[in-house]
Design a protein around this nucleic acid. Structure first.
Lengths: 192, 192
DNA sequence: CCATAAGGTGAGTCCGGTTCCGTTTACGTG
DNA sequence: CACGTAAACGGAACCGGACTCACCTTATGG
């Protein structure tokens, strides 16, 4: 149902320009850029922006949904090239590094965790599935514990990446992720 | 420098009422309560609110600073009553549960991680110290690995608690925390 | 080319945080 | 127990930023 009519040429162009401008703004530091500015830097008026996106939030959603799309493609490749445990390791760190591209992306992950929006809900599902694939592979290979689900792990990562702090947060995020991995490894001592 | 003059009686009363009303609002779900409402439910006008608090943000800060104060008191007691590892375990879970009181508290922890405000900076320091105390005790007892610092662990927790999501997030937060604890335990398999 | 509906525009509305100043009140003093 | 004064209060007005709407422009298919 997404396309009632194929969308006029200039409309599609403007839509693209808006997404690109917004991406620019959000992925670069400014997490609360004004709609007016985004619209202007895309060469259109606010009205046009609102023709294409229900709300400011909706625009942000769209930008990040694409980002998530990219990320979700990774597990398949990784599982082909590495042992499950290693694939998991790489994917988690990839996620963290990706969040580092701009503080914006971390906001995205955080939002994916926090909102009820159907869009994010969908993204969460796909991301959780991606993680599940990795976890299952590891579990089947006997190198990863089997009692943690993809969605749960996703939450941990969302949380970690939500700490968009100055100086050195990336190193800490990596360290924490490593910690998590150690906990996930099959044979880790259990708490209770 | 905090007190130039001891603050008039009614003023102190109103300040208290405002803090209490705000606490009520934030700790109960509504993370973005309107200042107008907070003021009204404290029985004063907005002007009064702004006499006591520089800004909406400042009010929130104040509310949560107290919350953090309480939390920071815990490690001492726990170390007296339990082995270090167990004390650490309980404190982390206490933290998570505390966040559960209302979604508001989790916002607080998140903010502690994210802002540069001197108030939060201070809170972060004290919280980090509290955790360090626990980690050091465990490390000295040989039951906890020694290469993780309090501040780092705090970030992990801040992240985890930032996931203020509906339904079941508390259980997941607990599980993730347990995961972290398993990773922290001395003798856990290392990643690299 | 024209008709027409899709698309664009930007001044205006709405909303919520913040300010400002006239009024009220606590409280030290004579 | 007045009184004077500085402190506190109230709330209408202000302002910035997201969002709307009535009108204009333009792509497009016949």
């Amino acid at each position: 149902m997404p396309s009632s009519r194929p969308l006029r040429a200039d409309a599609r162009r403007n839509r693209e320009a808006l997404l690109s401008a917004a991406r620019q703004a959000f992925l670069g530091g400014d997490a609360d850029a004004h709609v007016e500015d985004i619209a202007r830097s895309a060469g259109v008026a606010v009205g046009t922006l609102y023709r294409h996106f229900e709300t400011r939030e909706a625009l942000i959603e769209e930008v990040y949904r694409k980002e998530v799309d990219d990320l979700c493609a990774a597990p398949g490749d990784l599982l082909n090239q590495h042992a499950p445990e290693e694939a998991l390791r790489r994917f988690l760190l990839l996620l963290v590094d990706h969040a580092a591209v701009g503080k914006g992306m971390s906001v995205a992950l955080e939002n994916i965790m926090a909102t009820d929006s159907p869009v994010f809900d969908d993204a969460r599902t796909r991301m959780g599935d991606a993680l599940s694939r990795l976890l299952d592979a590891g579990s089947a290979a006997g190198t990863v514990r089997g009692d943690v689900t993809g969605p749960t792990l996703l939450r941990a990562l969302g949380g970690i990446c939500a700490m968009r702090v100055s100086e050195g947060w990336l190193d800490e995020a990596r360290q924490i992720t490593t910690l998590l991995l150690d906990g996930l490894r099959h044979g880790a001592p259990r708490a209770s």
